[in-house]
């Protein structure tokens, strides 16, 4: 006798729930499976309960995925290690990814400047290493230079020594006269002293008559009447010398 469709009469609730969760024994499961094929109420209930279970499962899965408890138990220990394993290159890469444009430009400029300075320093060292042998040659040429200079100085001194005395004396008196002209305040005694000092010192040869007369005229010491005196004076000067 088949059972009529009556959801209230069919009170196999526990069997439905056990069958739904697969907790019936093999024999009991086959028996209930046979029953539900002939019981629309059980069939309908099983469908509804199955749909409810799916909804609960969706909520459960989302809840457990959003919670971080599993990560703390399983991956949290690994996370610090993984973070620790991150290479410096990855950290630098992430820094540049997150940094603003101006910071990237500044960092690039700093790197470029560092490269330029490094290159200059290296080139300076290399140039310094090349300068070292030339220092030796420079020292050698410096010595030669000094020798050449000494030679030239000696030659110049010899040349000066070989020059005529009167030229140098007259030149010197003219020089003093021009100096006196520029200095009108200088007194005549200085002028006379200069001329007197210049003439005897430079003079190696006795003055001629004409020279004596000219000198006296320049000094305004004598007149025409003292020619004989001048000659005697000249002889005396030469004798004293």
């Amino acid at each position: 006798m088949s059972e009529a469709f009556d959801p209230i009469a069919c009170d196999r609730d526990e069997d439905r729930i056990a069958f739904l969760y697969g907790e019936l024994g093999d024999r009991e499961a086959r028996s209930f499976d046979q029953h539900r094929r002939n019981c629309p109420a059980c069939e309908s209930e099983l469908l509804d309960l199955g749909w409810t279970r799916q909804s609960i499962a969706a909520w459960r899965d989302q809840s457990l995925c959003l919670t971080s408890f599993a990560s703390t138990s399983d991956a949290a220990v690994a996370e610090p290690r993984q973070a620790h394993r991150r290479s410096a290159l990855a950290a630098i890469r992430s820094f540049f990814e997150l940094s603003p444009l101006w910071l990237k430009g500044a960092a690039g400029f700093a790197v470029l400047l560092l490269c330029v300075l490094t290159g200059l320093a290296i080139s300076g060292l290399l140039h310094g290493s090349h300068v070292t042998p030339s220092a030796v040659t420079q020292a050698y040429s410096q010595r030669e230079f000094e020798e050449a200079v000494n030679k030239k100085v000696d030659a110049r001194l010899a040349e000066l020594a070989s020059q005529p005395k009167e030229k140098s004396a007259v030149g010197l008196s003219e020089k003093n006269r021009s100096t006196d002209e520029t200095r009108p305040a200088r007194n005549s005694s200085n002028r006379e002293m200069t001329a007197a000092n210049a003439t005897p010192k430079k003079q190696s040869k006795p003055l001629t008559r004409a020279e004596r007369y000219q000198l006296a005229a320049d000094l305004r010491l004598v007149t025409d009447e003292d020619d004989d005196t001048l000659q005697l004076l000249g002889d005396r000067l030469n004798r004293d010398k």
């Binding site: 609730d13 526990e14 729930i17 969760y21 309960l49 409810t52 909804s55 609960i56």
Partner: peptide, 30 residues
């Protein structure tokens, strides 16, 4: 069901009945 009954210290049938009731109420609410 057996484990739930052990945890809650309830009869097995009570556990099944409660679960069935809970699912039915959820079904109605949804």
């Amino acid at each position: 069901f057996r484990e739930i009954a052990d945890v809650l210290d309830l009869p097995l049938s009570t556990v099944k009945s409660r679960l069935y009731t809970a699912l039915k109420q959820l079904q109605m609410r949804l």
